[in-house]
Design a protein around this nucleic acid. Sequence first.
DNA 1: TTAGATAATGCAATGGAAGTGCATTATCCT
DNA 2: AGGATAATGCACTTCCATTGCATTATCTAA
Lengths: 138, 138
Amino acid sequence: MKEVESILHDKNVRPTAMRLLVYQILSENKNAISLTDIENQLKTADRTTLYRTIKTFEEQGIVHPIEDGTGITKYALCAAYCNADKHKDLHLHFHCKVCEETTCLTEYSIPQISIPEGYITEDINFTVSGVCKKCNQG
Amino acid sequence: MKEVESILHDKNVRPTAMRLLVYQILSENKNAISLTDIENQLKTADRTTLYRTIKTFEEQGIVHPIEDGTGITKYALCAAYCNADKHKDLHLHFHCKVCEETTCLTEYSIPQISIPEGYITEDINFTVSGVCKKCNQG
DNA sequence: TTAGATAATGCAATGGAAGTGCATTATCCT
DNA sequence: AGGATAATGCACTTCCATTGCATTATCTAA
C-alpha cells in the first residue's frame, strides 16, 4: 500500500484513503471496469467521489478511458511511464460481446497511421469487438 | 428519391416515408450525426421511430455507428458494398474537440492488425480525436 | 382488390450514466 | 497547531438510450 501511495504522489495526486482504494480496485481487476463497477465494489463510497477520482486519475495519466462500443466508459490503469501530458501506452482493446468483458491487449500496440494534413492528434481509441478466447472455446 | 428507395429495398428494408427522410438527412450531412441531431432536423418524427430506424439501418449495413469518445453515438452512411453480414468499409474516424464534429476519413483505411490467437473479430472502431484542419487554422 | 398478417409508428414512461452546486470534512504546508 | 486548499458526500438535474403497448401503414397472396 505504501507503494501505491508513492505512485499517486509521483503523479501529483493526493493519496487519500478513497483514492488508494480506487487504485487498489483498478489494479486487482485484470479487465477494464466502469464507474458503476467500481461503485459496486466500494459500497461505502459516494458515486460522485468515485466519478471525480477517476476524472483526476485520467487527467494525471493514471488511468485511460476506453470506449468499447457499449456506450459505457471503462477504465484501466496506465503504464507507469504515462503522465498528465501524454498517454504513451497505446494499445488495442478488446470487447467480448459474449462475456461483455473489456480487456487491454497491452502486447498489441496501435499501428502507426497517417491522418490528413493539418489535423492534430491528441487521443487514439482502437477497439476491436467480437468473441474472446475464453468464450470462443466454451 | 426513387434511387434511395431501391437502395433500401436492396438491403431488405421497407422504404417507408420516414426511412427515406432519415436516409436523406444522413446523406446530406457530410459529418457523422447523432440520434438527437436527426431528431432536430426532423421535428415531425418521434424519437422512438428514429431510434428504431437507425437500429434497422445499422443491422442491415446501411449506417455504421461511431464511438467518438463523447459518449454519444454518431452515425454515418456505409459504403454501397456493405451489408447486414459485414461492414466492409473500414476507415478511420476523426473527432474534433473544438468544433465537436465527427467525420469519416474514408480515404484512410484501418491498418491490418493481428489479435491474439483464439479471438474472433466482429467490429473495429478506430477513432482519432484532436483538432481538425478547419479549427487548427482558425 | 381486398382481407389478413406483419411490420412500422407514436405516445408515454423508465432506466442509467454523467455531471453540477454547495456545505462539510480532511489534508497538507508552514 | 492553524489556516488555506482540496476532497468528499448529498441532493439534484440533465440527457441519451430503451421498452411496452396501442394504433396505423404496408405488403402479399388469394
